[in-house]
C-alpha cells in the first residue's frame, strides 16, 4: 500500500513537471512557427536603411525598431530605479528592522505585489498629471513616468528576494563573521551579501521579466503607437508589448496580425538577452565577491 501511494505520488510529480515543460515548450514552438516567417529587416526597419537607422540618422516610421529601443529603455530604466531601493529595503528588513516593523513592511510589500498593474498604471498617470499641473507643463505621461511606475510594480520582487536570500544564510555562517570581530555592516558586506548574492540577482532577473511583459502600466503612463525613438526621459515612446496588444486588437488583415507574432518573438529575444546578461553579471559578481 505504502509502495503504491509512493508510486502514485511520484507519477503525479512527474506529470506536473512534464506539463509545465510541455506548456512552455508548446508556447515557444507556437511562437516560433507563427513568428519566424514574419521576421525580416523590413519588419524591424520598415522602409528605412537599417544601417542609418541603427546610427539614428534615419527615422523608422513603419518598423519595430523604435519599439525595440523603447522596450529596452523602459525595462532597463525601471529596473535601475528599483534595484537600489529594493535591495536596500530588503537588507534593512533582513538585518536591521525590528520584528513589528518587519511585519508591517512585509504586509505592505505583499499588498503592493498583489496590486493589479492597471492600478499602478493609474497611479503613474495621476502622478504625471499632478506633476504637469504643479511643477512643469512640459511633463506629460512619458518614458520617465512609465519607468518609475514599472519600478513600483517590480519593487516587491526585489525587496522580497533580497530579504529572503539574506534570511536564508545559515545562522552558523552569520555568527562566524561576527564572532571574529566583524561589525554588523562588515558582516553584511563580507559574509552575508556574498552568500546571498545569487538569490538577490535572481530577484532582479525576475523583475526584468516582469517589467518587460507589462502592458497595462505603460499604456497609461507614456507609451503610444507612433513616437519614434525617445529623445529624452520626458518623451513619449513605443514599446513591443503595447504594439502586440495594439496589433492583435486592431489588425485589418492576416499579414498585419503575423507582424504581432514577429514582435512577440523579438520581445522574447530581448527578455532572453537581458536574462543572459543578468546571469553573466551574477556569475561575475559572485565569483568576484568570493575571491575578495
Amino acid at each position: 500500500m505504502k509502495l503504491l501511494s509512493h508510486r502514485v505520488l511520484l507519477a503525479f510529480f512527474w506529470l506536473t513537471g512534464f506539463l509545465t515543460l510541455a506548456s512552455v515548450g508548446s508556447l515557444l514552438i507556437f511562437l516560433f512557427v507563427k513568428g519566424v516567417p514574419s521576421l525580416s529587416l523590413q519588419l524591424i526597419f520598415g522602409g528605412a536603411d537599417p544601417f542609418r537607422a541603427l546610427l539614428l540618422r534615419e527615422r523608422v516610421f513603419d518598423g519595430l525598431f523604435p519599439a525595440i529601443v523603447g522596450t529596452t529603455a523602459v525595462v532597463v530604466l525601471s529596473v535601475s530605479w528599483a534595484i537600489p531601493v529594493g535591495i536596500a529595503a530588503g537588507i534593512y528588513l533582513a538585518e536591521f528592522s525590528g520584528q513589528n516593523l518587519k511585519k508591517i513592511f512585509n504586509f505592505s510589500f505583499d499588498i503592493l505585489a498583489a496590486t493589479p498593474s492597471i492600478v499602478i498604471g493609474l497611479f503613474g498617470l495621476t502622478v504625471a498629471i499632478f506633476l504637469h499641473q504643479h511643477f512643469s507643463d512640459r511633463i506629460y505621461p512619458c518614458l520617465l513616468t512609465s519607468s518609475v511606475a514599472l519600478a513600483v510594480l517590480v519593487l516587491p520582487y526585489i525587496v522580497r528576494t533580497t530579504q529572503l536570500s539574506i534570511d536564508a544564510v545559515p545562522h552558523s555562517m552569520r555568527a562566524a563573521g561576527l564572532s571574529l570581530g566583524a561589525s554588523k555592516l562588515q558582516n553584511l558586506y563580507h559574509v552575508l551579501l556574498p552568500s546571498s548574492l545569487s538569490g538577490i540577482l535572481s530577484g532582479v532577473i525576475l523583475a526584468l521579466g516582469r517589467a518587460a511583459e507589462d502592458t497595462a502600466v505603460i499604456m497609461l503612463t507614456g507609451v503610444v503607437a507612433t513616437a519614434g525613438i525617445p529623445g529624452s526621459l520626458l518623451a513619449k515612446y513605443e514599446a513591443l508589448p503595447f504594439y502586440i496588444y495594439y496589433i492583435s486588437s486592431q489588425y485589418t488583415d492576416q499579414k498585419e496580425l503575423m507582424t504581432g507574432f514577429g514582435a512577440a518573438l523579438i520581445l522574447l529575444t530581448i527578455c532572453a538577452s537581458l536574462f543572459v546578461a543578468a546571469h553573466l553579471l551574477k556569475n561575475l559578481l559572485v565569483h568576484r565577491l568570493r575571491k575578495k
Binding site: S172, M173, A175, G177, H190, P194, S195, R290, K291, K292
Partner: peptide
C-alpha cells in the same frame, strides 16, 4: 570556536 566548523565561503 563553535562545535560545528563554520568556515566562510572563501
Amino acid at each position: 570556536i563553535f562545535q560545528h566548523p563554520n568556515v566562510l565561503n572563501t
